[in-house]
Amino acid sequence: MSNTSEDLYAVADFCLIPMGTAETSVAEYIAECQRVLEKSGLKYELHGYGTNLEGPWSQVSAAIHACHAAVHAKGAPRIATDIRIGTRVDREIKPGTGNIGKVERVKEILKKD
């Protein structure tokens, strides 16, 4: 298995925060980012404080970059983004199952309680 960054399957969680807008709510900006992710073809899921995103490292990075560009184009003068990315090379992750696999494993453990 190759270990170059282009080959790594990335499971990411990111929170894009538009700054310097006149609005209290950032929902319109986040919706714009979700439109970008829909076009990316990557597996993603919005949650209350961010988005889970997974796929090849280079495509995940490119999608987050495209979200920044789209949100700036919508009028946000500044953006801060927190990103957590996990990779693993000890086993193959079936594309699209990285985040759900982690959640399901925890649920299995809790069922034993």
Rank of each mutant, 00 (worst) to 15 (best):
A31D: 12
I17K: 06
R78H: 14
A69Q: 13
E108I: 01
E54Q: 04
S5Y: 03
E108P: 05
V11H: 00
K111V: 13
K39F: 04
K111D: 08
H65V: 04
G75T: 09
I93E: 06
M19D: 09
H72L: 13
R91T: 14
H68L: 10
F14C: 05
E45C: 04
V60D: 00
H65N: 08
H47A: 03
L53M: 02
K102Y: 02
G101V: 10
P77M: 13
K107S: 10
G20E: 10
V106E: 01
A63L: 02
T87Q: 02
T21W: 07
R105K: 15
S25C: 13
K111P: 03
T4V: 02
E108H: 12
K112C: 10
I100R: 09
A12C: 06
S61H: 05
D13V: 05
H68A: 12
K74D: 07
H72V: 13
A69C: 14
H65Q: 13
A63H: 04
L46Q: 01
C15G: 06
A76M: 11
G101P: 07
L110C: 08
I79Q: 07
P18E: 10
Y29G: 10
C33G: 14
E45M: 01
G96V: 08
E6P: 00
Y9C: 00
G50A: 08
T51S: 00
A27Q: 12
T81F: 08
H47Y: 00
Q59Y: 01
E28I: 15
L110P: 01
E6K: 11
F14M: 08
S58R: 04
K112I: 10
A70G: 12
S58L: 11
E23M: 14
V36S: 09
P18H: 10
L16E: 02
E38G: 04
R84V: 09
H65K: 15
Y9P: 00
E104R: 12
D13L: 02
G86I: 02
V89S: 08
V106F: 05
Y49V: 05
R78Y: 13
T81M: 07
V103N: 00
R84G: 08
E54M: 02
G98L: 07
C33L: 11
A22H: 14
G50C: 06
V89H: 05
T24H: 13
L53I: 06
G41P: 03
I109P: 00
I85P: 02
R78P: 08
V71F: 07
Q59C: 03
E92S: 13
